[in-house]
Structure formats: C-alpha cells, structure tokens
C-alpha cells in the first residue's frame, strides 16, 4: 500500500478486495477486484454495499478498465475506484476523468510528476465521469 496515491477524504478501505467470482458467490464483501475485461455491469446490483472497487491493469495499453470505471460512476457509485497494476504517470489524468480516485501502481509514481500530470490540462473537450465542464459548455456559458 506504500504506493497508494489517493484522492479521497475518507479513510482508506482496509478489507482486501475479493475476485469478481468470489464476490458474486458470497457477496458480503465490501471490496471487489475486476480484472481486465471483467464486466463492471455485473456489480450494478451491489453498488450500495461496496466501499472499494479495484480495477486491475495487467498492461497499461489495455484500456478496458477506463470504460469499467466510467460505467460504475454513471450508475452512481460513489465509493473508491482504484487503479492497480501497470499504472503510469501519463495515464492517471485520463483515469481521474473516468472516475478513478485512487492509484496503486506496481512501480511507484514520482509524486512531483504525478502532481504535474494531473494539473496540466486546464480544459477538456468532452464530458466524462468527473464534474469538469467540457469546452463546448464553457463556450456557451453552461
């Protein structure tokens, strides 16, 4: 957990995340882990009782986890969504936009580089899972 970079005010969740299959079997767990390509929508009936959903990135180039996180946020999940695995500096700004609010990278991120990467973009072109207004809304006073 030393590598954990977290953007939430609440206490970090202590319970280890169970696999999706394990969760669907016993389902009293409050933390679950999705591997690349596992269907986030299977969790939709249980979002109320989940505190942490960890999404694994086996390789940074596998972008399925971005959709998974966004789908969870679009269905109102407000617990922690953590990106774990091959998570790199140049991905975290996009991940934040898709609804990830904590990062547990295999290789620690340089905190200065991370801060710089997250602060870089003043504007965004499109709506995502964060509350940032797209440029086209700003242009028209929305």
């Amino acid at each position: 957990m030393d590598n954990l970079l977290r953007f939430r005010d609440d206490e970090a969740h202590e319970e280890p995340a169970v696999t999706l299959d394990g969760f669907l079997d016993q389902s009293n767990a409050t933390a679950v882990r999705l591997e690349d390509g596992e269907d986030a929508r299977q969790l939709l009936p249980f979002l109320d009782r989940l505190a942490l959903i960890e999404i694994g990135f086996s390789a940074f180039g596998d972008g399925r986890g971005y959709s998974a996180a966004r789908i969870l946020r679009e269905h109102g999940f407000d617990g922690e969504i953590r990106a774990q695995g091959d998570v790199l500096i140049d991905q975290i700004a996009f991940m934040r936009r898709c609804g990830f609010d904590s990062f547990s990278p295999e290789t620690p991120l340089d905190p200065g580089d991370a801060e710089k990467a997250l602060a870089r973009w003043n504007h965004v072109y499109q709506h995502a899972a964060d509350d940032r207004q797209p440029i086209w809304n700003k242009r028209h006073g929305q």
Binding site: F60, D62, M95, Q126
Partner: peptide, 14 residues
C-alpha cells in the same frame, strides 16, 4: 474532432 481529442476513455483502444 473536439469530442475525440484527448478522450479519456478511448485513448487505449484495442
């Protein structure tokens, strides 16, 4: 073009 520029969900497609 605008929508797809720096799209956070679709920058690591298959």
């Amino acid at each position: 073009r605008q929508w797809s520029s720096f799209h956070p969900e679709f920058s690591f497609l298959p």
